[in-house]
Write a protein that binds this DNA or RNA. Structure first.
Ligand SMILES: [Mn+2]
Ligand SMILES: [Mn+2]
Ligand SMILES: [Zn+2]
Ligand SMILES: [Zn+2]
Lengths: 154, 154
DNA sequence: GCCCGTATTGCAACGAGTTGCAATAGCATC
DNA sequence: GATGCTATTGCAACTCGTTGCAATACGGGC
């Protein structure tokens, strides 16, 4: 593992404090806790999930603070969220690439729609309407191939 | 107004009772209230909205009953729902045609994506993944042309 | 190292749903 | 028109957030 590419973005969680202060925002104990939790998380997580994980680190954690901080971090581009089929928020932690979601409402599996695959979809809407799609917030429900075969009607 | 086309689907709200019973379900006072409210509603409505309107008719209305009945009616295809940007449910009452939604998160306006416009989008996903999109549940956020011009960065 | 403006927090109350359960009431059958 | 099965209701408690407000505590400036 010696030949790791040098220009890969570093973890970068340490820059968060700086970026907050640069905007006149503050680096508090509560934010340190949440950012610590996020640094140890990958993939998609629920807001409630994050509250719970913060509480594991600091039992005095309050939900409103966590949700408010998530809003701030989303402004900074550090997290993104989309919504599950029930509308609940799901956060992506430092998504490698911008992506949308495809979810089967029968087997509940989720697939990511990468930027390449999304390109034509996004371009079509852009062309027809001048509307810029927020890809990371996109969550498409339906039925996957396997489930459709399993129960054509139902 | 004499020359109304004859084959237009009739209001059809009266069939609801029959369709419920055909499935072994029941036609209750509470369901009569909700269906009455729906018959007098068009476009998109929130669940909470519907609870409120039912209460105007029958003050003893209970939220859980309304939401449970909406689920049943959705099974019957009488209503459909999608989600607002905040994830809250929004119902379409007897949508004329299956359609998706485009919503600008700056001006909060909503546009419908008709079946024709959606066709290519849906077909692309179907072709690439074998995934069948639930168009009426689709809600795409982003920024409309006007808002993008108004504040290119922001 | 202290001051002070203001960003942030915690609390409490609220809003939108959801769920388990015991009581009620459709409705199909006789 | 009465009976019985079971779908449905209402209640209460719970989940996931959101919001207003007074108290707290960052952190830039001195
Ligand atoms: Mn939904
Ligand atoms: Mn959202
Ligand atoms: Zn599936
Ligand atoms: Zn707009």
């Amino acid at each position: 593992m010696g030949a790791r590419s040098m220009d890969e973005a570093p973890a970068g969680w340490d820059e968060v404090a700086t970026r907050l202060r640069a905007r006149g925002l503050r680096w508090t104990a509560q934010r340190r806790t949440l950012v610590g939790v996020l640094a140890g998380t990958s993939g998609h997580v629920t807001g409630a999930d994050l509250v719970e994980r913060c509480r594991a680190v600091d039992p005095t954690t309050t939900p409103s603070t966590v949700y408010r901080t998530l809003d701030v971090l989303e402004d900074l581009g550090i997290v993104r969220h989309a919504h599950g089929a029930d509308g609940r928020e799901e956060f992506h932690v430092r998504p490698a690439a911008d992506h949308g979601h495809l979810r089967c409402d029968r087997c509940l599996q989720v697939w990511e729609i990468g930027p390449d695959e999304a390109r034509s979809l996004v371009a079509a809407i852009e062309a027809a309407r001048g509307f810029t799609v927020d890809l990371s917030h996109l969550s498409i429900s339906g039925r996957c191939a396997a489930c459709r075969e399993a129960s054509p009607r139902g």
